[in-house]
Amino acid sequence: MDLTNYRTLGKSGLRVSPLTLGTMTFGEEWGWGSTPADAEAIMSEYIAAGGNSIDTANIYTKGHSEKIIGDYLKSTDIRRDQLVLSTKFYCNLYPGDPNAGGASRKTIISSLENSLRRLQTDYVDLYWMHAFDPFTPIEETMSALHDLVTAGKVRYIAISDTPAWKVAQAQMIAQFRGWSAFAALQIEYSLLERTVEGELIPMAQDLGIGVMPWSPLRGGILSGKYTRANQGETQSGRNSLEGGTHFDENTYQIIDRLTELAKEKETTPASVALAWVVSRSGVTSTLIGARTMGQLDQNLQSLAVSLSNNDIASLDALSKPVLNFPMELINNRAANLAQAGTSVNGVSSLKLPLAPQSIKEVY
């Protein structure tokens, strides 16, 4: 597999690379990002390799990430339409202004106009609601987004970091009112964050929404730079975002297994961890973040990593999540209870205690 193995995003006809270039690291305003020159080199290599999907947000490095992308596209002969360029609204860049953040019609429209100015383009291919806004009716959000699609300023809409019940509600409202519906869902997903397998990923699969995981390396924890030997030592400027450098035993077991598999396959732990996410059911395109060319190369190597069923099973066992009620009940018991005493797909189900042998015995 390589970056030209394009997949359609959800029910849409939009084709994206299996790895999307995330640009939260573009700009040095947060203290640990890449310079504009380095960011441009990263974009050039990604696009030259066949990548077509670039993701940013209004909040990334206080808007500088969008500006870097816009300047780059203006200074090169890359055709704008060949890229799937996405950005996000929701985060407030103007402290003290209550209408500069969230998901209201006013916020959405003004945020888009500012993003288009920084990106130096007249449309974005994918416009993301960055997070759940409990203060704005979802009808208002969906209506405003549909109007932007109708106006040609947005091609597709998508949603991130929102409960499954709210995403489902939004999709149903859009369907019944003939509005644009979400084509994709961004969620944190990695070997250290699998609780999304309870409701978010099954919901996305059932509703035809493409899943785009973020932080597949859990902020660098699964990159290979953290080991038992350097426990507690600072490894990057992002340690504060990653929650420090002290991890529990289970995390180190996962890191150990990634290291073993990396040696077997002559690659890096980061590539193995990414390959696991890319292989997951429901995942369309996985977000990668690169501050350096070396990090980008490691991320791209993941597409050449082949994980066997045994490899995946070993990682699954170490990272098995505890799901919220009622998912464990459903997965472990409900199907068997519904088919008690029968065989479905060759698998025998449970027999209920004192199960009646015939309908007559019930009465």
Rank of each mutant, 00 (worst) to 15 (best):
G13L: 12
P18C: 09
G27P: 12
E29N: 13
W30P: 00
E40R: 15
I47M: 14
G50N: 05
I54N: 08
D55P: 13
N58Y: 04
N58A: 04
T61M: 11
K62Y: 06
K62E: 05
Y72R: 05
D81Y: 10
V84T: 08
S86L: 01
S86Q: 05
T87A: 08
F89H: 07
L93E: 12
P98T: 11
N99T: 06
A100E: 02
A100Q: 01
A100Y: 07
I108C: 03
S111P: 12
L126V: 11
F132Y: 06
D133A: 11
D133G: 07
E139H: 08
V149F: 14
K153A: 03
R155D: 00
T162Y: 02
T162V: 11
K166E: 10
V167K: 05
V167F: 10
Q171C: 03
M172W: 15
I173G: 03
W179T: 09
A181M: 12
A181C: 01
A183M: 14
L185I: 00
I187P: 01
E188H: 13
S190D: 01
L191M: 04
G198K: 13
L200N: 12
I201G: 09
M203C: 10
G210A: 14
G210W: 04
G210D: 11
I221C: 01
L222E: 04
K225Q: 13
T227E: 02
A229W: 04
N230M: 06
L241I: 09
G244A: 00
T245Y: 01
E249D: 15
Y252T: 06
Y252N: 04
L261D: 04
E264L: 04
K265Y: 07
A273V: 00
A275I: 05
A275L: 05
W276R: 02
V278R: 14
R280C: 11
S281C: 02
S281K: 12
G282R: 04
T284Y: 03
S285C: 08
T292G: 02
T292E: 06
M293I: 09
L296K: 03
L303T: 08
A304K: 07
A304V: 00
L307I: 00
L307E: 05
S308D: 08
N310L: 11
P326V: 00
E328L: 02
L329E: 14
N331P: 00
N332C: 07
S343W: 11
K351F: 08
L352V: 13
L354H: 15
V362H: 03
